[in-house]
């Protein structure tokens, strides 16, 4: 409801809440990278094709170059910095490391966030489903195969982890 040059917004990013004063035109990607110092999210094309800047907003993958920070006001954002917990890599990060699903690493945060969303909806995806889910992320280094292997491996790791939870916990 503001028509000033700047607006005040509240972003919850990786669990922490931040108050930011931004121009309405400030892209979410720039708010994350420059205002919050979360430079893991990379800008590869700024027109929504490459997927490098993919983050989760309320659990859904979005291009942070095609969303204004003001539109995330009051919403929950998750970036690559939110994956590892207490120095422990997330199973997806671990799997990308083991399968070497990355080379230069620039597109990697986008792939991780896209794959994270996929595994939330579909804990045991087929290769076809992985390819379809990742088809909006461009990697110029790997030829994708080791990324697919990493997602497969992570899905097994996640499935394995939940299988070890004692029955009766509802897991």
């Amino acid at each position: 409801m503001q028509d000033e040059d700047f607006v005040t917004i509240r972003l919850t990013v990786n669990g922490g809440t931040h108050r930011l004063v931004v121009e309405p035109r400030r892209l979410l990607a720039d708010a994350l990278r420059e205002d919050l110092g979360l430079t893991g999210t990379n800008l590869g094309c700024e027109h929504g094709v490459c997927g490098s800047c993919t983050v989760l907003v309320d659990g859904q993958s979005v291009r942070s170059c095609l969303m204004f920070a003001v539109q995330a006001n009051g919403h929950e954002v998750m970036t690559v910095e939110g994956l590892a917990r207490g120095g422990e890599l997330h199973p997806l990060q671990q799997a990308f490391w083991e399968k070497q699903g990355l080379q230069c690493g620039f597109c990697t945060p986008g792939f991780l966030m896209t794959a994270y969303e996929l595994l939330q909806h579909n804990p045991n995806p087929s290769e076809e489903e992985i390819r379809s889910a990742l088809s909006g992320n461009i990697c110029r280094c790997t030829g994708y195969q080791q990324i697919i292997e990493a997602v497969q491996s992570a899905s097994q790791a996640v499935a394995g982890a939940s299988a070890t939870v004692p029955s009766g916990t509802g897991a």
Partner: peptide, 11 residues
């Protein structure tokens, strides 16, 4: 590649 200024309303 950054957008130009605009006034913003969120009804």
């Amino acid at each position: 590649m950054k957008p130009p200024k605009f006034r913003y309303f969120a009804p």
